[in-house]
Amino acid sequence: MKDEERKKLLIELLDRYEERIFNLIYWKIGDYEEAKDLTQDVFIKAYKALDKFRGESSYYTWLYRIAINHTNRAMKKKSLLKFFSLDRPESRSAYYDPEPDEGEKWKEWALKAIKERIPSLPEKYREVIILYYFDGRSYEEIAEILGISMGTVKSRLSRGRDLLSLWLRGSEKVGRRSE
C-alpha cells in the first residue's frame, strides 16, 4: 500500500472511530489525559500495521482489538508501578445523600456514581458494559471483538450490571447510615 493510500485510510478510520476508541479507552481507565495518549498510540499502531490487515475481520473489530490489547497492557504496567510505589487509588465521591425517590436528584447522583465506578469494575465485565452500553455494539459484535461466545457476552453483561446495581444499593445504605 502506498503512503498516500495509507494516510487516506487512516483519516477514514479516524473519522469513523476516533471518538469511539477514545471513549472505549476512557471508560476502561477513567483518565482523560491517559486516554488521549493511548488513543494516539492505538491509531499509530494501526497505521503501522495497515499493510498487515488481511480483511479477515472488519476494520472496527481489528481496531477495537488493538485498542483493548494496548490499553490492557498499559493498565498492567500501571498497576505494577502502583504496586511498587504503594499508591492508593483515588478516593471516590461516593455515598448517597439524597433519598432514592428524589427522582432527578437521585438520578444525577447515580449517574455520576456509576461513571466513577465503571473503571474499577473487573476487566471482563467492564469491557462488555462499555461496548454494549456506551458504544452501542450488539452481542454478536462484542463476541467478535473480544473473541468470546455470545453466551459469555450476555452473562458478563448481566454480572457487570449486577455488580453496579449492588454497589449502588450498598452506597445508598452506607450513605443513609452515615447521615
Binding site: 487512516l10 479516524l14 471513549n23 476512557y26 488521549k36 449517574l111 456509576i114 450490571r161 453496579l164
Partner: peptide
C-alpha cells in the same frame, strides 16, 4: 425496578468528547 433503573442509567451515560488536538497529534506523529 432496580434493573430498569440501572439500565436507564447505563443507557444514559453520554459519550465523552475526545480532546480537540487528538487527531492533529496523531497525524503529526505519523
Amino acid at each position: 425496578e432496580r434493573e430498569i433503573r440501572i439500565e436507564e442509567l447505563l443507557s444514559g451515560v453520554e459519550r465523552v468528547t475526545p480532546p480537540q488536538g487528538l487527531r492533529f497529534e496523531i497525524l503529526k506523529e505519523i
